[in-house]
Simulated assay, not measured.
Amino acid sequence: MRIRVFSAPHLHEALSKVRKEMGPEALILDRQQSKDASGNSLWHVHAALDAVAPPPAKPVKPAPQPVAEPAQPHPLHADATIRRLERMIEGLGNRESASLRQALTEGADQRAFDLLLKLGVSASHAFDMAPDFARRNPTGSKTIRWGKRINPGEQRHIVLFTGPSGCGKSTLVAKLAAHYSMKGIRVALASTDTERMGGLDSLKAYASTLGIPFFPLRKAADAGDILRQTQSAQLLLIDSEGWSPRRDFGLKRQTALWDAMQCTQRFLVLPANMDEEDGMQLLGHHSASAMTHLAFSKLDETQKPGKIVNWAISAGLPLGYCSFGPEVPEQMGWMTDHALTALLGKTGRDASV
């Protein structure tokens, strides 16, 4: 029997090393948590493998064979292969979840882990969050980046909101405009959604109701004039045309407009009812478009809000605004670790009813 010790700052990382080095048949003997010289957490996993694989046989040069046309796989055979691979991947995920759950010694932590999985949080993140979540402490405070709330009363902010079509950007911008206007902040609105029929109408109507200036931004040359006309505004909110990661030309055209507006913050808005993989694909573009924060909309339209945890950690961007419905200006706020804990807790209770 071959026994090895694998060490990493997090348990799931150590378990990942076991699978990589010894394969899925490795037996986990023990898990221990300690501190390194700097006082940081360090996990040690003892793993064993019953049999050592024999060394590969010396390859024998095959006799030359006539070249034949490659056989085309039958569609049914290809589908069956894909299904087998999907089952293998699912099995590995279930095995990882079981290992992480077993490493939580408290029953309350294990129940919190199960609930977080049910809400869409990935197993490795659920493991890190479960102890705090079980005790209703601020969840994700150590694993997620939290943005600093903007304060237009102290300095001028030019804030862009962008994301896929229909993600709720315009509604969030309208909510913020109403919220800050009622606080006595001088607000102005602009929009780059000038190519789509009716793209400016809803936000223009909100601006008229609130009595604040509104400007369409059609080309980069318009930016200088808009910035001059809004010099007295403490907060300039910019709505953008929706874009898709499958059609990069829209994003590239928009980026030139955003650069010309000298934005102080750029929020990528992800709707919580979006498929998680589609959201991950969108996040692959945030570096090229120089996003600074994440914002979430439609949090009332999903039973798996935990996906926003996976998005946030994957993107490495600080969290900012969140929106829960179409009402203006209600159901909007700044996402904090306390707000996330309340959101996951409420959805978890509703799901268990």
Rank of each mutant, 00 (worst) to 15 (best):
R87S: 08
E69S: 07
M88Y: 07
I82H: 12
L100P: 00
G91P: 02
A48I: 05
A57R: 10
H44T: 08
A57C: 07
L49M: 14
P54V: 08
P66K: 15
Q72W: 10
E86R: 13
V67F: 08
A47I: 01
L76I: 06
Q33K: 15
K61W: 02
H44G: 03
P59R: 14
L27H: 13
A63C: 00
D36Q: 05
G93P: 00
H44K: 14
A103H: 04
I82A: 15
D50N: 07
A48Q: 05
A37H: 10
P75V: 04
S99N: 11
A47L: 07
Q102T: 09
E86H: 12
V67Q: 10
S34D: 10
S97F: 00
E90S: 10
W43Y: 12
A37S: 09
L42M: 08
D30R: 04
L49Y: 09
Q102L: 12
A53E: 11
P59V: 08
S41I: 12
I82M: 13
V60S: 12
Q32F: 11
D36G: 04
A26N: 01
E96V: 08
P54Q: 09
V45M: 13
V60L: 13
A80H: 05
A80T: 11
A63Y: 00
A47Q: 02
P56F: 08
S34H: 09
K58P: 00
A68V: 12
G93H: 05
A51W: 11
L42F: 01
D30E: 15
V52E: 15
I28V: 15
H74E: 15
L42D: 00
R101A: 10
E69D: 08
L49P: 06
L49S: 14
L29I: 09
V67H: 03
E90R: 02
P54C: 11
I82N: 13
A51C: 11
S41L: 14
D30Y: 05
R95L: 08
W43M: 11
H77T: 11
R87P: 01
P75M: 09
S38K: 14
I82Y: 13
L29R: 14
G39C: 00
A57I: 03
A53L: 13
P56Q: 09
R87Y: 04
A53K: 13
P55D: 11
K61D: 03
Q65C: 13
D50V: 02
V52N: 14
N94M: 08
P55A: 12
Q72M: 10
L92Y: 10
Q102R: 12
R31T: 06
A78Y: 03
E69F: 08
E86P: 04
S99I: 00
V67K: 11
T81A: 06
N40F: 04
R84M: 02
